[in-house]
């Protein structure tokens, strides 16, 4: 009994951390690109989008997992979408009320969280088949990985494109910002570059399996073995 309990705890932790590295939604699975590129021209916007997505993903995964026995198979996708859309409407109104500036900066992209393939994908692939705790762990891990990826893209683009980080000037007056990085092409180029770096780190890590990067990156240590 005690063993079973520990095993399920370990599994839950594993569901949580897999989204951060091994199955990172943006860098590994390349999902949810539209928000990952459209609103990441500053770290602040990236974080707001990440948190909004986290709210929607954790909320809808929990609800779908609770209702999974009652949802008829034939219409499950429509039901998932309606659940997701309700959460997105909630977060849209919440942001409009409490963070009007951020809401304005995002434009229609908060509403477009509905069609983020990552969210529907997790409902179909995970939440509809597992009980509430693993479903929540999976959702939290995936949205954590998504937020992390967005923050990385946002930080690179803001540092190079505006010479600031979270609005604080980094390089002083003499720095000439690479304006292209905060424009649309910068999004594509930054994500392409980060994908290359991720692939390189992954390859290096697989080459020297024992030891290596594991000490500093527990998620990677767990994920890389599988």
């Amino acid at each position: 009994m005690a063993d079973e309990k520990t095993a399920s705890d370990v599994r839950n932790v594993d569901e949580l951390v897999k989204g951060l590295w091994r199955d990172n939604p943006v860098f590994i699975a390349v999902l949810g690109l539209c928000p990952a590129l459209a609103v990441t021209n500053s770290l602040e916007n990236a974080l707001v989008m990440g948190l909004a997505t986290t709210f929607v993903l954790v909320g809808s995964s929990t609800l779908v997992s609770l209702l999974r026995k009652g949802i008829p198979k034939q219409v499950r996708i429509s039901i998932y979408i309606i659940i997701i859309a309700s959460f997105v409407t909630t977060v849209d109104f919440l942001l409009a009320a409490f963070a009007p500036t951020a809401h304005k900066a995002m434009g229609a992209f908060i509403a477009l969280i509905v069609v983020n393939c990552l969210i529907l994908g997790r409902q179909e692939a995970f939440a509809s088949k597992h009980s509430v705790v693993p479903a929540m762990a999976d959702a939290a891990g995936m949205s954590g990985g998504f937020t992390l990826a967005l923050a990385m893209i946002g930080a690179v683009r803001e540092i190079l494109g505006s010479g600031t980080l979270l609005g604080f000037s980094l390089f002083g007056e003499s720095f000439e910002p690479w304006v292209i990085m905060i424009l649309p092409p910068g999004g594509f180029l930054t994500l392409g570059l980060l994908l290359v770096i991720f692939a390189w780190v992954k390859k290096r890590f697989e080459e020297r399996q024992p030891g290596g990067l594991g000490a500093t990156e527990p998620a990677a240590a767990k994920g890389g073995v599988a």
Binding site: V30, F188, L189, L191, G192, L193, L195, V196, A199
Partner: peptide, 16 residues
């Protein structure tokens, strides 16, 4: 390392 998705992103960036 660049083959596949990453290359598509660079191409898309230049196109953009």
């Amino acid at each position: 390392l660049v083959k596949g998705t990453a290359m598509s992103f660079f191409v898309a960036g230049i196109l953009s």
